[in-house]
């Protein structure tokens, strides 16, 4: 083989491998991409049952209910809409009511979000970024979200503090 032929073989091989890889990537991008939504976006887009997506928002106060054998239900809200979520398993250490959460799963026929993964915030001041972004967009963001809610102490607590004792 001449130098040119050899080079052509090489380039041919490279192109074949690259074409295969491109095919794989495009195929995978079509099938295995998961979109992020908040409850309001779910309501707007009318996502059908069975379509996987990531749901982000705040766990509504008082909505967490534990059922038998690690089944839990809670409601995720973003200030605009709420969505009931069902999950079976152990919730992360930092899962709390009123805190940001991201769950991955799909809606079932009754409009309940069946989550198979639940991620909570990582530390005291961390809010899952998708949740933070979405809340910011909707104007529900306060800069000290996730930090201690000390910017809004109770009205009744303030005047009673001295007077009651």
């Amino acid at each position: 083989m001449t130098r040119k032929q050899r080079r052509l073989t090489l380039i041919g091989c490279a192109l074949v491998v690259l074409a295969i890889a491109a095919g794989l990537v495009l195929n995978a991008l079509r099938d295995s991409i998961v979109f992020f939504s908040t409850p309001s976006m779910v309501a707007e887009k009318h996502l059908g049952p069975g379509k996987r997506f990531r749901l982000g928002g705040l766990v509504e106060q008082g909505s967490l209910k534990r059922g038998d054998n690690l089944a839990v239900t809670f409601t995720v809200g973003d200030g605009g809409a709420t969505l009931p979520v069902a999950y079976k398993g152990i919730l992360p250490d930092l899962f709390r009511e009123g805190q940001g959460v991201v769950a991955e799963g799909a809606l079932d026929a009754n409009g309940v979000f069946r989550a198979d993964t639940v991620l909570a915030k990582h530390d005291e001041t961390y809010m899952p970024k998708d949740v933070a972004d979405a809340l910011k967009k909707q104007g529900h963001w306060k800069d000290d979200y996730g930090a201690k809610p000390n910017s809004m102490p109770s009205a009744s607590a303030a005047p009673t503090q001295g007077a009651m004792r």
């Binding site: 106060q61 008082g62 809610p149 809004m152 102490p153 109770s154 009205a155 009744s156 607590a157 009673t160």
Partner: peptide, 14 residues
């Protein structure tokens, strides 16, 4: 109880 209220922003939670 009062501290709990404080952390809930003034609402008397359960």
């Amino acid at each position: 109880g009062e501290a709990l209220m404080g952390s809930a922003g003034g609402v008397v939670t359960a």
